[in-house]
Design a protein around this nucleic acid. Sequence first.
DNA 1: ACCGAATGTGAATATTAATTCAATTTTTTG
DNA 2: CAAAAAATTGAATTAATATTCACATTCGGT
Lengths: 155, 155
Amino acid sequence: MKNKIKRFAAIKEIISTNTVSCQEDLLQLLAERGFQLTQATLSRDLKQMKVAKTPDVSGEYIYKLPNELKNSEEHNIYLASSLTTIDFSGNNVVLHTRSGYASSLAYEIDERIPSVIIGTVAGEDTIIGVIKEGLSQKEVFDALASFIPTLKGRQ
Amino acid sequence: MKNKIKRFAAIKEIISTNTVSCQEDLLQLLAERGFQLTQATLSRDLKQMKVAKTPDVSGEYIYKLPNELKNSEEHNIYLASSLTTIDFSGNNVVLHTRSGYASSLAYEIDERIPSVIIGTVAGEDTIIGVIKEGLSQKEVFDALASFIPTLKGRQ
DNA sequence: ACCGAATGTGAATATTAATTCAATTTTTTG
DNA sequence: CAAAAAATTGAATTAATATTCACATTCGGT
């Protein structure tokens, strides 16, 4: 459903920019943005999105996005410009970047989608990534595309 | 109290090696190891330790340690051997390492204690870290010592 | 367009987790 | 060492969150 997608985006936006400590509060913030749903649905949404409830530095509980959903525009632009090719072979993915950019892109991959690509090694302009057992190449591609805009639509 | 310290260690050990999905289960595992406590106390322990409850890849809920409490023996040995000096100045900490090791140690610091050292820059053998406002040098030292064995006892 | 399967949802409920309150122990300080 | 302050804890409670069940909607494949 279309609404669910938008709602996920809204949840992501809200908890990455606000301090939310319980689902009731989040429900309220969603309502302000025009999303009407119950706590039951929200609980399910958060589970699907793998949002964690964690004690904060401040001592209170807050909801946190998993690394895979974290995002930052500037970074995306940077990453987008550094990637040149992507290929799959068996449970490996091979990425090529502009010279010198491999390790920083590898770093981002390690940070963002550790449950999809379980490890990487980076040279100067090449990254070899090992794909988690059982995942399809498409799933990996999509996970990468989630934070590398130039990949969107491609493949 | 002595028991609490040991209990924290036990909790850390249990949830880093087991899949625990609720406090009752964890209580049970603690009981097996000789720790007798109630759910109320456990809830407080987890809050203090900043243990997050997060949806797992598998779809179930699991408790996860914050990065600052994660650990790995091999890594520790590696880190221990790479660090040579540590000094403080105002809200900065300066670490020296064997040549070439600065960025990997800086990476670990960024990963493990982001709420203590809010940022680092690393050269070839030097790391400059910026300490979070309000923290004492001792607190920072202890946070570093928590994953760099050679620091334990020192200072 | 129709059917069956899969997905999405709310109301109610069950489960899980956090906190209050009171009592106790430990630590600090004069 | 005594008194005060701080920390620790359990029982009971409240609060928060997950799930069950029933129904509705959407999707995929004829």
